[in-house]
Amino acid sequence: MTDSKTGADAGAAARSGRGGKRERLVEAAVQVLHQQGVEKTTLADIARAGDVPLGNVYYYFKTKDQLVEAALGAHCDRLTVLTARLDALPDPAGRLKALIDGWVEQRETAARFGCPFGTLATELDKRDDGLDEAAATVMRALLDWVERQFAELGRSDARALAVELVGAYQGMSVLTNTLRDPGLMADQGRRLQSWIDGLARP
């Protein structure tokens, strides 16, 4: 959801040795949690993906939940970077369409594993340890940004439109993953682009 950087890219960055061990572990956590889910993932899995000895993991993270929380923070940071880049575009319709383009670029990853953030948020929603609320905070940040774009288009129903757009993305991610059909996301992305164009017309 938050960027066009795939889990495979994150894993490659981790294995290349760029960044410190903590940063590599967080990037690896984002990748492995997306591919395997929270319950199936172990600290050993994350350590292996981050090319960090398992014993060193405990210096930075005492529990898997702490790594999950750090991964949520990484998703939030990526969203901040993404929206700042989109904000440099001259008009709100263009920003929204660029956001959709980024989603569609991830269609192969979505077909294999689902939305990088949506799948994690859905899994954490079944818990009541605070991680569910941390995930909700990231989702609200995306909704708030999308709402601002629709408000700039002069829409009085900006919040409802933001929910509709983000909901459409999450829905097409689920279908793309369930049917293993990246073309479905490409088709739906084009429909959303046309929808934005219609809303932007005076």
Results as ranks from 00 to 15, higher is better:
L67M: 15
A93C: 05
V30M: 11
R191G: 12
G55P: 10
G171F: 08
C76W: 07
L153I: 02
A88P: 03
A135K: 07
L192T: 06
Y59A: 12
D9L: 03
G154N: 09
G94K: 03
A12D: 09
L86D: 01
L124R: 07
K62P: 07
V104S: 04
G102R: 01
L86R: 13
R140V: 13
D77I: 08
L96P: 05
Q35S: 09
E39M: 09
D157A: 10
P92R: 11
T42L: 13
A168L: 12
L120F: 05
K126T: 15
R191S: 10
R201G: 00
H75N: 03
T83C: 02
T63P: 04
K40D: 14
D125E: 12
L43V: 14
V174F: 14
R107V: 09
P182E: 05
W103T: 14
L192H: 06
A88Y: 00
D65I: 00
W145E: 10
E147T: 01
Y169M: 15
A14S: 10
A29R: 03
M1P: 12
R22T: 08
V38A: 13
Q170N: 11
K126C: 06
K5T: 15
E69I: 00
A141S: 14
A88E: 15
A111R: 06
E152L: 11
L89H: 07
G167I: 02
I46S: 03
G130T: 13
L142C: 07
R190M: 14
L86G: 00
Y59T: 10
R155F: 03
T6P: 12
P53F: 09
E27G: 08
L99S: 12
M185P: 05
V166K: 04
R112Q: 15
T63E: 10
L120C: 11
